[in-house]
Amino acid sequence: MTTYAALLRGINVGGKKKVPMAELRGLMEGLGHEGVHTHLQSGQAVFTTGRGDEESLADELTRAIEGHFGFPVDVLVRDHAYLEAVAAACPFPAAELEPRQLHVTYFSASVGAERFADIDPAAHLPEEFRLGDRALYLYAPDGLGRSKLAEALARPRVNRGLIATSRNWNTVVKLVELTGS
């Protein structure tokens, strides 16, 4: 049995794509997953299963959500070891920063620096980003809502062909904790 986190992109934001967490838990339990619990209302669910891999579990959950709620939702599934490795590899001094200043964008596949070639890092200072394993770390000292670099990183041409979903550092750490227990 492996414990995973399902990361749902773009739900319960501004009254759109409403996915009540109790319904999501029931849906996942109906798929045969165990120990299902959710974190916050923004699309994190932790579960245990003995079948499948990250990609097949994400595909299954994507189809089930669309079938149940009537709209598509991008889903990434990541196991504890991956989530822990991403947190440990953070290139920024996470312990010294406010959690609102540090974010991780999880990608459905590996990304290379060429995707970001048209973004001038110097033009966005003191904001910075670094690439990791299917992840991007963003340091935004004034928070994500005011980040011009976050806007540039979210452009469709940068993320073309990928599922990408971001979490603040508090959530990154919490997911490691929840999938490890």
Rank of each mutant, 00 (worst) to 15 (best):
H33A: 12
H124I: 00
F116K: 06
R157I: 02
A88Y: 04
E60Q: 15
L76Q: 08
G112Y: 02
L175T: 05
K16G: 09
S110K: 13
A150V: 03
A109G: 13
A113D: 12
L76A: 10
A164F: 05
N159S: 14
D133S: 12
P141M: 06
Y139A: 07
S56K: 09
A123K: 12
H124Y: 15
Y137K: 03
L40I: 15
H39L: 15
A135E: 12
A123W: 03
G132W: 00
L8W: 08
V158F: 05
T38K: 10
K16T: 14
T62W: 05
A5H: 05
V172I: 14
V19S: 10
E127P: 01
R9E: 04
D142M: 02
A140N: 05
A117Q: 11
V176E: 09
L153N: 09
P156W: 09
A58N: 12
D79E: 14
G180F: 09
F116R: 09
P121T: 08
D59F: 00
I119R: 05
Y137A: 02
G132I: 03
A58G: 11
E98N: 11
E114L: 03
V158L: 07
A113Q: 15
T3G: 03
L102T: 07
T38W: 07
G143P: 04
E66K: 13
G145H: 04
T3Y: 02
D133A: 12
A150H: 13
A95T: 11
E84A: 14
G112R: 09
A6M: 12
M28D: 08
E151W: 03
R134I: 01
V172F: 06
T3K: 13
T105P: 06
K148T: 04
L131C: 02
S108M: 09
P20S: 08
E98Q: 13
G35Q: 14
N168V: 05
E96K: 13
Y82R: 10
I11Q: 09
P126L: 06
V19N: 11
